[in-house]
Amino acid sequence: MMRVAFVSNVVFPFVKGGAEKRIHEIGTRLAANGHDITVYGRHFWDGPKETTHEGMTLRAVASETELYSDDRRSITEALDFAARSIPPLRRHLRANEHDVVVVSVFPYFPVLTTKLASLGTDIPLVTTWHEIWGDYWEEYLGYLAPFGKFTERLTARTPQHPIAVSGNTADRLATIGPERDDITIVPNGIDVDQIQTAPRPETSYDVLFAGRLIEHKNVDLLLDAFDKVAGSHDATLGVIGDGPQKSRLEAQRDALTHSDRVDFLGFLDDYEDVLGQMRAADVFASPSTREGFGLTFAEALAANCTVIAADHPDSAADEVIGDAGFLVKPNVDSLSNILGRTLNGAQPAQSPSKRAQQYDWDTVADQAEQAYQRAIDGS
């Protein structure tokens, strides 16, 4: 039996997001296999500061608070959580209550303080790297970008057992910190059965996008590309998601020749509503140029969509979809060309649903369990 401690300022399902969902899915499966699992986080749940949830112990080390400031993750919140986590972590680690502690890297500071809390013990620190931001810090933080880059590099160079969610992320991590051979790849996961049984919606779309409406997702390219082919294919496009570019993108939609074929659905609170839309769509298109993994690609594969993604060095889309989808240059002409072909029935070489099986949470949890055990063993 392993005694695993996860450190995450947000805890699923009380706050919904990819990194915290990964902890939940892996943690609950490890707990079901007889391991002792504790999650240190903010007190987002009702009831006492320490409680049990689906076989895991949840331990609040800080109170609930706002996570975002001006549509960006709050640096103050991250620093506050990191600082408040030190005393309880240090107390429980020194009492030898855990064999390994696992920290999601973003927002970085908890990695540094967890390492500080573990000093004087033999308990290994495992980190999970979802992506490497690099030059993206300039877009995200502006004049504060050097601070972001420094923090990312400092975190990467902290002694750890690093896990990356893709080979792309691992390669980028190796340029700022650990040796590439020391990085273990454990992908993000999906619940294949849940996706393939999600109820289909009353209103569906031929082409679907799902994701945050931010610049590097390149939804503007998708709108223009779709407009070029919509007339000759009698197709419709649904855009799921919200974000700072929503108003601008809606204005762009209104100027399209086939604007009546495009609907913005906003953020869908019920995850199964997103999955149902994927099941009902023929094509899932996301020309995003920055994806540390690309979870929506895996979900769309499981829904048996024909997936179209951007071929870009900052995206792991090629790893995720393999031969079960199509990669295009992130420009309107390339995207409209492949959209037209897929709407005419072009199929990828490999079955999308078959490809998706390797990302099922059961498989991912087994890989994570092996990685945590290797860290404990020192190998």
Rank of each mutant, 00 (worst) to 15 (best):
M1V: 01
T51M: 12
V7W: 02
R42Y: 02
V101G: 02
T363H: 14
R29W: 12
L141Q: 13
A356S: 14
T236H: 13
A309H: 06
E138C: 01
L237G: 07
Y143L: 11
V307G: 14
G177V: 10
R91W: 01
E64V: 00
S288K: 03
D193R: 15
N218W: 00
D220V: 05
I37Q: 03
D135A: 14
A346P: 00
E152M: 12
M2F: 06
V239H: 02
K149Y: 00
A285F: 08
S118P: 07
V274H: 01
I214G: 02
T257P: 00
L173K: 03
V103Y: 05
L144A: 15
G340A: 01
D191C: 08
S104D: 15
K21A: 11
V102T: 07
S259W: 05
D269L: 02
I376W: 08
T113H: 07
A174S: 15
G211C: 04
I163Y: 10
D99Y: 01
T28Y: 02
L327K: 09
H53L: 13
K329P: 00
R172S: 14
E299F: 02
G378M: 10
R29I: 11
W137Q: 08
F326G: 06
T65F: 06
R248W: 00
L249E: 07
T52R: 15
I308R: 05
N218S: 12
F326C: 07
A174H: 09
V219H: 03
D242E: 15
R261F: 01
A19R: 07
I338E: 04
V103E: 06
R73G: 14
S315Y: 08
L256H: 05
F209L: 02
Q357H: 10
K217Q: 13
A365T: 13
A365N: 12
I240G: 04
L222K: 08
K354Y: 12
D323T: 12
A255K: 13
L265A: 00
T65W: 01
K21W: 06
D360N: 15
L144I: 01
D263P: 00
V332G: 07
L125W: 04
Y140W: 10
P124Y: 07
T38E: 03
A324F: 12
H43W: 03
A235D: 11
S118V: 02
E319G: 14
A174D: 13
Y205E: 06
F150W: 15
H216R: 15
A230Q: 13
S74R: 07
F267P: 00
D227M: 11
R212E: 10
F326V: 06
A156F: 04
V100Q: 01
D377M: 11
M278K: 09
R42M: 06
L112I: 15
E369W: 04
A303M: 04
G167C: 10
V219Q: 07
T257Y: 08
S379M: 10
E202V: 05
R84C: 09
I376L: 12
A251W: 01
K16Q: 13
V283N: 03
E20D: 12
Y68R: 10
I75T: 14
L79W: 13
I183N: 04
L256R: 06
R355C: 14
L208Y: 00
G120M: 14
S232Y: 00
A349L: 12
D224M: 08
I195A: 09
D99R: 01
T184V: 15
E179W: 00
V262H: 04
D220F: 06
